[in-house]
Each structure stands twice: as structure tokens, then as C-alpha cells.
Amino acid sequence: MSIPTNLKYSKSHEWVKPEADGTVTVGITHHAQELLGDMVFIELPEVGRELKQKEECAVAESVKAAADVYSPISGEVTAVNSPLVDEPGKINEDAYSAWLFKLKPSNAAELDGLLDAATYTELVENEGH
């Protein structure tokens, strides 16, 4: 369950799912939520915001830490998962269904630069927790 093979990953622990309509869905990985602990607050970007790759665009906050979420690729925010704001614990329950926002990529080539599941697994294992 912890690293689905159908997704792409960033080094900063975001997952990316290319959708049929050309947009991508972004969330944080199971590993990231494990490091942070119980989520207590999520701050999401505004719909319509133009993000650059690696730009800070959301915050995931637990009791003991607050982590910035970086946009894995450049693009415009087309939707955000607003119900998550009231139930941040959903990320702990299932990090891959609790998405944060959707992007319309402005440079699709960036997608190819992301990690696949195998490489991301290696990255997580090398972190030694």
C-alpha cells in the first residue's frame, strides 16, 4: 500500500497522478505523513494560482511539525480538495486518496523528470527513516 506503482513522485515526497483530462492530481506520500504524524491542519493553494515547479504552495501541519508542500511540476491550480481542511486526518488514513490539489501542467516534460515508484522506494529506504 505504501508506494503505489501507478504514481509518480518528487524528492520532496509529493505524489503525482496524471489524469485522463490532461490535469494531474497532487498529494503527499504515505511516507511523508508518517514522518509528520497526525495531521491537524492543511493549507491549500488558491484555485487559479500559477505554480512553478518546486514552488511552496501548501502546508501540512501536525502537532510536532509543519511541512511545506512543493509543487512537483509547473502549472495552474484547477481544483483543491477543500473538505480536507476540515478533516486533515484523512491524509493519515490514506495519503493516496486524500489529494491536495489538481494542476493543469504548463510544461508536460517536467512530468518525465519525476521519480517512478521503484526509484522513490529506494529514496525512502536510503533515508533510513
Partner: peptide, 12 residues
């Protein structure tokens, strides 16, 4: 709400 504070959020 300690994630607002310097001991957790540091420069932010």
C-alpha cells in the same frame, strides 16, 4: 497550534 511558533516553524 505550536506549528506557528519559532521552535517548530523556525524561519517561517
Amino acid at each position: 497550534l505550536q506549528a506557528r511558533e519559532q521552535h517548530i516553524r523556525r524561519s517561517k
